[in-house]
Simulated scan of single mutants.
Amino acid sequence: MPTPETLPRHELIGLPVRVADATHDGYVGLGGRVVDETTRTLAVDGSGTGVRQVPKAAATFEFRLPGTGDDAPAHGARGADQFVTVAGERLVARPARRTEHRGDSIWR
């Protein structure tokens, strides 16, 4: 399960997302589910607005991680949703390569 610290290393497709900030005002507030990912873009399917390509490097994203809040019980039941803000620059990479790197090792 992704955590705020490890989210950039996990699969993003399927996660609910909202564009919190962007260099282009047309992207700010855009939300939905991530349906595809390329090296430089996230494809976001908003309800009724269709699929929009959002450049990763030009935006800050807010992902919703379901049931991972501090009040999540240890026995596996779902807790409150947690929102994680990630600068898009941290996500710019081929998805397969981005998920391979841990990011906290000095040896990679």
Rank of each mutant, 00 (worst) to 15 (best):
D21V: 07
D70E: 05
R52C: 09
R102I: 00
R40Q: 15
F83S: 04
R90Q: 03
E11A: 07
D81Y: 02
L65P: 04
P4G: 05
D45F: 06
R64H: 07
G32E: 08
V34Y: 11
E62F: 07
G50C: 09
A22F: 12
R102A: 05
G32D: 02
F63D: 04
A72C: 00
W107S: 04
T6V: 13
H10L: 05
K56A: 11
P95K: 11
E100K: 10
A58Q: 15
H24L: 15
L7N: 09
T49Y: 04
E5P: 01
G50A: 12
V35G: 02
G79S: 05
V34G: 11
P4S: 06
L65V: 06
D36M: 00
P8C: 06
P55M: 14
L7W: 03
Q53T: 14
T23R: 11
T99N: 11
T6R: 10
A22E: 08
D25C: 08
L15S: 08
L30Q: 07
V86N: 02
L91P: 13
P66F: 03
A77H: 06
P73K: 09
S47N: 14
A57W: 12
R18Q: 15
A20D: 14
G31I: 06
G76N: 12
E100S: 07
R108K: 03
T49Q: 07
G46I: 09
P4E: 04
R102M: 00
P95H: 11
G46W: 07
A58T: 13
G32K: 03
A20K: 14
Q53G: 11
T60N: 03
G32L: 04
V86Q: 00
D81P: 09
P55Y: 14
D81T: 03
V44N: 07
D45V: 04
L91W: 05
P16H: 13
V84R: 02
A72Y: 02
E37Y: 03
Y27F: 15
V35Q: 01
R78N: 06
R97C: 01
D45G: 01
G14Y: 09
G79R: 00
G31Q: 15
A93N: 15
A96I: 14
S47K: 13
A80P: 00
S105I: 05
R97D: 15
L30M: 02
V86W: 00
E100F: 12
R33D: 10
P2L: 10
P95L: 08
D36A: 11
S105P: 05
P8E: 02
V28E: 15
L15R: 05
D70F: 01
H75W: 11
V54I: 15
H75A: 09
A96M: 08
G103L: 00
P16W: 14
L91Q: 06
V17S: 09
P73V: 10
E11I: 06
H75Q: 08
P8I: 06
V44D: 09
P2Q: 13
S47L: 14
T38M: 12
